[in-house]
Amino acid sequence: MADDVGRIRIRVPSSIKAGDVVRVRALVIHPMERIERDAQGKIVQKAYRYINQVTVTYLGRTILTLDTTQSVSENPSFTFAFRATDPGPLTITFLDTTGGKYAGLADIKLA
């Protein structure tokens, strides 16, 4: 299971026309550790591993940044819209609190 961490699936519409505003869904496999408590109900102090930043770039420009907390679910998915003006790469980068960096790429092709 641990090997799957950071696996990313990005879904873009199959046919995109120039200028369309399209919605993209990105899913990442990640534990998004939630806060643990001991028997006394005290918070266990440790370095929790969760994604705290998601960055979306299109044609090399950052179009969306998400700062996230542990209130985001395990194996989270994020949906957003963007205007497809030119063919090119759409990259989604996930950073977690332990230094993990996972990037996914979708090649935007225009019909």
Binding site: V21, R34, I63, L64, S71, V72, S73, F80, A81, R83
Partner: peptide, 14 residues
């Protein structure tokens, strides 16, 4: 950013 064309964000939360 304006490049998004639409102010839309969705996600799965706890």
């Amino acid at each position: 950013t304006p490049e998004m064309g639409q102010a839309f964000v969705g996600e799965t939360i706890r």
